[in-house]
Design a protein around this nucleic acid. Structure first.
Lengths: 156, 156
DNA sequence: TAAGATTGAAGTGTCAATCTTC
DNA sequence: GAAGATTGACACTTCAATCTTA
């Protein structure tokens, strides 16, 4: 049994945390549902397609995608398999070194992201940014960056 | 094909959104992993156990749990089944009306949440609140509440 | 018919083990 | 051994269909 010097949250912290957690859940489910409904893509599909569509030659090494998204390698591999089965991306193994695989955006994948992006951005604006002032947006960005920096220092 | 008046995000909005999305992913995975490692509970287990442990008689109707968590009924049902199989909760069907079921916290479930709560709170403090000033916490709570209010107005 | 709840199927994410090449 | 990647098993989430009772 680990002994912890229990320091509970203050009333303000507790309220902020509950609101923040609830906000995450609401945004995640609404955005995923709308994206799925309008385009047939999942949020994960969307992330990968954006990265590939912006990459040189519309291709990346799998581990680069992993680094950009922060996903574990098994999750990435599983997801690329599913996207490949739906014709959104293609795996092109390197000759002479089977450890590496290039992930290439297909024409179908390109069409999908070109059609999905404006819908997705409009939705994010409608449910999120339309509610916030410029100051609130800046404050949120500041909080997010502050915590992310803090997390980088913490051993993974 | 739906035509959308495309309004992209400003540079600031885009940066804030990317940081915010990344923050959500980092927090979610770290908290889930640590909770699992230290207590064997998932984040969803934790949510349900907290609600039940604070409820009158340590029991609630399933749909009340659904309302508090915001989960869909099928997700809730599946999750309660898994928790029941692990002995954390018990289903007690009402007599005369099989539509309703009381979900009751077991002794084992109670022990689990009592042991997990201080560890979880300490972890949330360490990875999140330790990085933020009181002003930043308030700003975050303000942003979250603002967007949540906005979302309530939007048709679900 | 509507509300509370369950079920099965399919998509998604995590963990541990494995494989190949450097 | 370490890095890039895959696989299989299992847990989780969503969707659609179903069941029961008011």
């Amino acid at each position: 049994m680990v002994v912890v010097d229990t320091v509970w949250l203050t009333e303000r912290e507790h309220r902020a945390w509950r609101s923040f957690v609830r906000l995450q859940a609401e945004l995640r489910s609404r955005i995923a549902r709308e994206l799925q409904r309008a385009t047939g893509l999942s949020g994960s599909d969307y992330e990968v397609l954006v990265l590939l569509s912006e990459a040189e030659g519309r291709r990346m090494r799998a581990f680069e995608i992993g680094a950009q998204t922060g996903w574990e390698k098994s999750r990435l591999s599983h997801h690329l398999t599913r996207m490949e089965q739906r014709g959104l991306v293609e795996r092109q193994p390197c000759e002479h070194d089977t450890r590496y695989a290039d992930i290439v955006l297909t024409a179908r994948g390109h069409t999908a992201i070109v059609e999905a992006a404006p819908l997705h951005v409009a939705h994010v604006r409608a449910i999120f940014f339309d509610a916030l002032s410029a100051e609130q947006v800046d404050a949120l960005g500041d909080v997010a960056d502050t915590v992310l920096e803090h997390l980088e220092k913490h051993s993974d």
